[in-house]
């Protein structure tokens, strides 16, 4: 038995899937931080990103980088519209109403995608053509490198944005205390719009970059959303690096569980992990206990 190759292969697979979960989780966090809303339509942004990229490449024959950017921009606008036309009307609703509203939006987005693209899966050509690289006997697809690269890029850009730019700092301030932020002159309303824009764009980037590997169809969003949600909770809601680490961890846990334990129960393992964390450390694996005290569980 070639133990080494298997191990490395599971690692590659887990990192690729985990990176996507991480991006979805970061999307949840951005919106949650500013609005305390969990946007259940986050997975649909991923689906839309993938299918939009297919549209720009397949129908309009854009080169891939242009299609990628266009897909991200289009979906960002969808996110913006979602806040502007739907959620802004429901600011003071209960948690339950907000959950239902975002679920309704996700159903609408899914339905719209079904009309536009039908029910068949679509694929994209990989961003760079070429044979998979072999490392320690395990194959690594070039597209997987793109996935990891884009996740790294998003994380770096986001941390620069949040710690260096005025807007980013303002958003963090909204997250800490919206009322205080408003009092100190931060336009909270704009920050909310910005958070939807960013989070939809990040979701779309994830969708566009994963499509060459895993294909994309109209009803893929829900499961990706659920997994990303798990990662967000696992890392502690609102924690960016927590989401990144938890996303990768979740991907790896699934991949190794499928490899060494049972492939049928791999999804259950991730969920069980999530339950344990919620029950015993609700602030998330990487959340701080002190910050958690300020929030309501």
């Amino acid at each position: 038995m070639d133990f080494g190759a298997g191990w490395v292969q599971y690692l590659f697979s887990g990192l690729t899937t985990g990176a996507i979960y991480a991006l979805v989780a970061i999307g949840y966090n951005i919106i949650y931080n500013v609005t305390e809303v969990i946007n259940f339509a986050q997975g649909e942004f991923v689906m839309l990103g993938g299918l939009m990229a297919v549209f720009f490449v397949g129908t309009l024959h854009f080169p891939i980088p242009a299609a990628f950017v266009c897909a991200v921009l289009t979906v960002s606008c969808v996110g913006l519209a979602m806040d502007r036309f739907v959620l802004s009307r429901a600011r003071n609703k209960s948690v339950l109403s907000l959950i239902i509203i975002t679920i309704a939006v996700s159903i609408l987005l899914k339905g719209a995608a079904m009309f536009e693209w039908g029910k068949d899966p679509y694929t994209l050509p990989p961003f760079t053509q070429g044979e998979p690289i072999t490392i320690f006997g395990a194959a690594l697809q070039l597209q997987a490198l793109w996935v990891l690269g884009i996740v790294a890029l998003v994380v770096v850009l986001l941390s620069i944005f949040f710690h260096r730019s005025m807007y980013g700092k303002a958003m963090l301030a909204c997250a800490d205390n919206p009322r205080a932020a408003r009092l100190s002159g931060i336009p909270v309303r704009q920050m909310v719009l910005l958070s939807f824009l960013l989070s939809a764009g990040i979701g779309a980037a994830a969708g566009a970059v994963i499509t060459p590997i895993s294909l994309m169809e109209y009803d893929r969003g829900a499961l990706l959303g659920l997994k990303g949600f798990g990662a967000a909770a696992l890392g502690g809601l609102g924690q960016f690096f927590g989401a990144l680490a938890a996303g990768l961890f979740l991907g790896l846990a699934e991949s190794f569980c499928a490899g060494y334990l049972s492939s049928g129960y791999k999804d259950a393992v991730a969920l069980l992990l999530l339950l344990m964390v919620l029950f015993f450390k609700p602030e998330g694996l990487f959340g701080s206990r002190e910050a958690a005290k300020l929030k309501r569980f």
Binding site: G6, S13, R220, L224, G259
Partner: peptide
């Protein structure tokens, strides 16, 4: 709806 089957194939 899985996005990657390399673990299964590797096994």
């Amino acid at each position: 709806k899985d996005t990657d089957l390399t673990p299964q194939l590797t096994k």
